[in-house]
Design a protein around this nucleic acid. Structure first.
Lengths: 268, 268
DNA sequence: GCAGAATATTGATTTAGATTAATTCGCAAT
DNA sequence: ATTGCGAATTAATCTAAATCAATATTCTGC
């Protein structure tokens, strides 16, 4: 705790707001925006309004910064952790994307989640002290690792952080229950439409285009996540394209008619 | 505690509550053990080793006690809260059982969860400040209501409570992801077997028989939860019975061969 | 105790999506 | 450029579970 911290905390207010000003055009301010840069601080990270630092003031963000470990980037296929590894940390995606999956007894995996920048990975391990799934990078990606015991200690000091982490976990629970409903009653087309719309709003959240994006995962990953086979996912993509609702080109997706996609899943 | 106790209390209504307690304890402790008794304290609650008070010392339990509101019992069908109500509290089941469900646009519900004594309800509302589902009693039941803002405040004072509530939420997340896997890749028989085994261990947790219990929910509830139709659930029950794995009599279930049921879902 | 309404079972038929199989496409390594 | 392999598409069957339909059982209120 240096004197500099105290002084800088006096000047919060309007400085905080500057961080939010990432225009949709995302005109980069060079180094701080480089998504894989491992030396960026929470205070200057372009995701700090979506990630853990949300609702923290400058001093608090600095304290959080102290416990965050910024590892080297992960290559495609690298594992963050494996099923039943001892739980030690939760992770915030800084750039790239990850998938979580479990291996069934028959050897084939089932995908339990995808993670985009600003999202938190690993909360399934908190209770049992062992991760319930394996998680690997879908592309070249970078991560902020937050040792959980330290996060707990800090949460105890910072009510804002405690509150926010409760909210993050509550959000995960609510999201998982939506997926429960999706899997237990939606058709293949509804699941697929819902999946695409979900990705769309998650990309929008990090100021990327909600209507045009690259799928970081394979059709097979999508199928395992949605409880469908690869073939069905592929067929549904083609069908949605024929209906003029989307445009697919391998991993490139454009949503041409978001309203109609919404109608498919019963949102008017 | 065997289901015989419950079935023998055919004289319904006000005698219902007596059914569960058959301890030869004195009348004074008889009152504190009565599961619907609204005046029981956390310190003397028979669930305090499974519920929120776990890992708290005497003083801490007393502090928790102060914020817990013990409402009148709920009748079958009574709602704890409804979808999109403002989130205010989480609830611990003291006796009986509850189901959470969401209504689809077509009016039919999908069940998102069942809750037995010692389990926590309502965490899906924490992030959005509105409950994401409706929750109602499946039978005559009682509840401890814990206003969330006060739980947060107290968690801030008691690191043990903060730690434990993180664990409860983490457990919910891990459980929801297991269900994700279940729904996305298991057959009707596997889902049903898994459901029965899950109930079994949850009953064991509250010192009830793991092999013989009453289902508090309808076949339709089970179907909506597992992503199956009523007819399929009924057929699977009959099939499992014919295989000699279970014995079903309307709501009464006996698991005759837990090992083989485990093998069905691929656990050896 | 009885009537009507839920709840549950059982059977016949249909169907959405799985399975099987064959190509084609995309791209990383040479 | 060429090769090789994982990823994706497309088509032809197959099947698990849904749907449709009828009946039986169990609860609930009067």
């Amino acid at each position: 705790m240096s004197p500099a911290d105290v002084t800088s905390s006096r000047t919060k207010g309007n400085e905080e707001n500057i961080a939010i000003q990432h225009s949709p055009a995302a005109s980069a301010s060079a180094r701080t925006l480089c998504p894989h840069n491992p030396n960026i601080s929470c205070a200057s990270c372009r995701l700090n309004e979506l990630c853990l630092p949300i609702a923290l003031n400058k001093t608090e963000i600095h304290q959080l910064d102290e416990i965050v470990e910024r590892n080297r980037p992960y290559k495609k296929g690298d594992h963050l952790y494996r099923q039943s590894d001892e739980f030690k940390s939760v992770y915030a995606v800084r750039s790239g994307s990850f998938k979580s999956y479990v291996l069934s007894d028959t050897g084939q995996g089932r995908v339990t989640g995808f993670f985009l920048p600003g999202e938190i990975i690993g909360m399934d391990g908190i209770a049992s002290k062992h991760y319930a799934n394996s998680t690997q990078a879908l592309e070249h990606s970078s991560i902020c690792e937050i040792p959980f015991s330290q996060l707990e200690k800090l949460s105890h000091q910072l009510p804002n952080l405690q509150h926010h982490f409760f909210a993050i976990m509550g959000n995960e629970i609510a999201k998982d229950q939506q997926i429960h409903t999706l899997l237990s009653s939606y058709t293949a087309e509804e699941r697929t439409a819902s999946f695409l719309l979900g990705l769309s709003s998650r990309y929008a959240r990090v100021s990327l285009s909600p209507s045009r994006f690259l799928l970081p995962m394979t059709r097979s990953d999508i199928g395992e996540y949605l409880g469908l086979t690869v073939e069905t996912v592929s067929r549904i993509f083609t069908a949605l394209q024929r209906k003029g609702l989307i445009e697919v080109n391998n991993r490139e997706i454009e949503l041409l008619n978001i309203d109609t996609l919404r109608k498919i899943i019963g949102v008017d």
